[in-house]
């Protein structure tokens, strides 16, 4: 049965007068693994923040679990973009994971045995149980990212939102993170912002391309419309075209779709200086 977890209708959002998202319509069902892709500054993080309720829509509606965002914080796990603000913070890995329990209700600075067991379970799922007593600033970027994933998993969320969890992570770390995500319960919906569609291609059940507007498609296959939305159109032979070809190859897209862009009279010119 199709059960929408996220429903977005006619969503529009601007920063001052600069539009970030315009007339976005999306539906994401339970159990899906969605990759959100798009160029830098295209509005991916803004979209995630609107879904989480960290930003208010200026027009349109966002519903998560059939309610306004922010009504069900315990059912949503969030892994923000990796940031250096966590550097030097006086906390062990276990304490960071326990922070995932805070929901503005529980009090005091002692965590119960049950809470520690929940943290242990989440750390085991994220493959970082052996790091539990290490200080955060003793860990590598990949290890820290997996600790943040464990923090998001501690409440066993039905919806997991990850904002570029694979950026600046080495291939082994990426593989570990993907294994964690693909090993989640089939009822868990995953929405992951990612620049690297190649590594996620085997895991995703759908793609959303975002560049002010949004286009969604099932499966791990990019469509010509998505490519045009994200990167415009480019003539064969230019470096951007070659990069797009790589993207197409990694997502198993039908390569003839790129050929169709060749004949597009609005194709962008590709300027590059010879070395």
């Amino acid at each position: 049965m199709y059960e929408p977890i996220i429903e977005i209708r006619n969503l529009t959002f601007s920063y001052d007068s600069v539009p970030a998202l315009t007339e976005v319509n999306l539906r994401i069902a339970r159990g899906e693994f969605i990759a959100v892709i798009g160029p830098n500054g295209g509005g991916k993080t803004t979209l995630m923040r609107l879904i989480l309720g960290l930003l208010e829509p200026q027009r349109g509606q966002v519903h998560v679990f059939g309610e306004p965002p922010g009504n069900n914080p315990a059912r949503i796990g969030y892994v923000p973009q990796h940031s250096n603000t966590t550097q030097g913070f006086p906390a062990s890995a276990e304490q960071v994971v326990l922070m995932g329990l805070a929901q503005g209700k529980r009090r005091g600075f002692r965590f119960t045995q049950a809470e520690r067991e929940a943290a242990e379970h989440a750390m085991r799922r994220a493959g970082v149980l052996d790091l539990r007593h290490r200080r955060l600033n003793e860990l590598s970027g990949g290890q820290r990212q997996r600790i943040l994933i464990a923090r998001a998993l501690i409440t066993q969320p039905e919806l997991l939102i990850l904002d570029e969890p694979l950026s600046n992570i080495d291939p082994y770390g990426r593989q570990c993170i993907l294994e964690t995500l693909t090993g989640l319960d089939s009822n868990t919906t995953v929405v992951m912002v990612s620049h690297d569609l190649g590594i996620t291609a085997n895991a995703v059940t759908g793609i959303i391309a975002v560049n002010q507007f949004a286009i969604a498609t099932p499966g791990a296959k990019l469509t010509p419309a998505m490519l045009e939305l994200m990167y415009g159109t480019h003539e064969a032979g230019c470096p951007v075209h070659a990069l797009l070809q790589q993207l197409v190859d990694s997502s198993n897209i039908d390569s003839t779709s790129l050929e169709s862009n060749k004949a597009n009279p609005t194709a962008q010119e590709c300027h590059h200086e010879p070395h």
């Binding site: 922010g70 914080p73 966590t86 922070m99 929901q103 503005g104 600075f109």
Partner: peptide, 15 residues
Amino acid sequence: LSFSFDPDFARSRGI
């Protein structure tokens, strides 16, 4: 603790 470590995450948790 949660707010000091990561305000965005804390907000997403309803804090």
